[in-house]
């Protein structure tokens, strides 16, 4: 079949020599399944074809198309590269295919195509502070970026995570956050919407953490992911404090069928989220001319 597998005979080879799986899904094995939060599971997986596994590199911020055999394909954001972390996806069961995915067990197989999309602009932000702001499962797309930033810790100034969820049960990646925290200079601020028995952390909304964390505005970039209400209030706070619209970065979601810029389902105005995105600056998002 016509996936590249390093022979570079395919029309879709990249000059970097690392070519995406474009047409035919590659089979992966589900090694382990972890319950993350209500309705959210993390699937750890590995490629059956070890040559593919060796070639498979994901830039933080990209996405893959994942096939649940018999049910269909869905786009899922940003698993980290196998070299950095175990290859995994975190998925909330919301639709037909993701529900089918949640019914699977270790040893079952999935199909993977990708990676697609532009990824986070790490080259351009060397030397700056990074502020991660996430609401609920908005931490999923930011996770690989945090892992990347911590691996290249010396390239950046302060690294801050502001994270909020509805309740403590909805907080994702708890064990990972503990590990990240041990990293010198990773500052974490976590809040939940309402007080809870046994919770001695912050209570309130994420944008209220900006002051608590004493977030630097100059020479900073903010990566913001979460539900629209949270997104808007956080961005409002940053803009009020004088942060530039180019320094606020987010990822967009759309229905995706192909991942390679052909089916057009993910078009927003003049942009295609699958090939031009999914990472955009707030200035770009503002000028797309369509509802987000």
């Amino acid at each position: 079949m016509s996936n590249c597998h390093g022979s570079h005979a395919h029309g879709n080879c990249k000059p970097t020599g690392l070519c995406p799986i474009v047409t035919f899904p590659e089979v992966v094995n589900i090694d382990e399944i972890r319950d993350e939060a209500p309705e959210v599971k993390t699937f750890y997986m590995s490629f059956l074809n070890k040559d593919v596994e060796r070639e498979f590199r994901i830039k933080s911020g990209q996405f893959i198309m994942c096939t649940v055999f018999g049910a269909g394909e869905f786009a899922v954001s940003l698993p980290p590269s196998p070299e950095n972390d175990r290859f995994h996806i975190s998925v909330r069961a919301v639709g037909k295919v993701t529900h089918a995915l949640h019914a699977l067990k270790p040893g079952d197989k999935l199909g993977v195509r990708g990676p697609f999309g532009n990824g986070f602009p790490f080259e351009e932000i060397k030397g700056k502070n990074i502020i991660y702001v996430a609401g609920g499962i908005g931490l999923i797309p930011l996770r690989s970026s945090i892992v990347h930033a911590l691996q290249h810790r010396e390239d950046f100034g302060r690294i801050i995570l502001l994270y909020g969820a509805r309740s403590s049960r909805d907080l994702m990646y708890q064990p990972d956050i503990q590990i990240w925290k041990q990293n010198a200079g990773f500052e974490t601020f976590i809040t939940i919407d309402r007080p809870e028995a046994g919770w001695d952390g912050e209570v309130g909304y994420v944008h209220q953490l900006i002051d608590k964390a004493n977030v630097p505005i100059d020479n900073s970039v903010a990566f913001v992911c979460g539900p629209p209400v949270m997104f808007n209030s956080v961005i409002g706070e940053f803009l009020k404090r004088g942060m530039s619209e180019d320094a606020i970065v987010s990822t967009l979601e759309r229905q995706m069928k192909c991942g390679i810029g052909k089916c057009q389902h993910c078009a927003i105005g003049r942009t295609l989220v699958c090939t031009d995105g999914p990472v955009y600056t707030y200035r770009q998002i503002k000028t797309l001319g369509e509802q987000i």
Binding site: T67, G70, G72, E73, K257, C258, K262, C263, Q264, H265
Partner: peptide
Amino acid sequence: CSCFNVED
């Protein structure tokens, strides 16, 4: 027009 849908 070239939009398409994909279904399994």
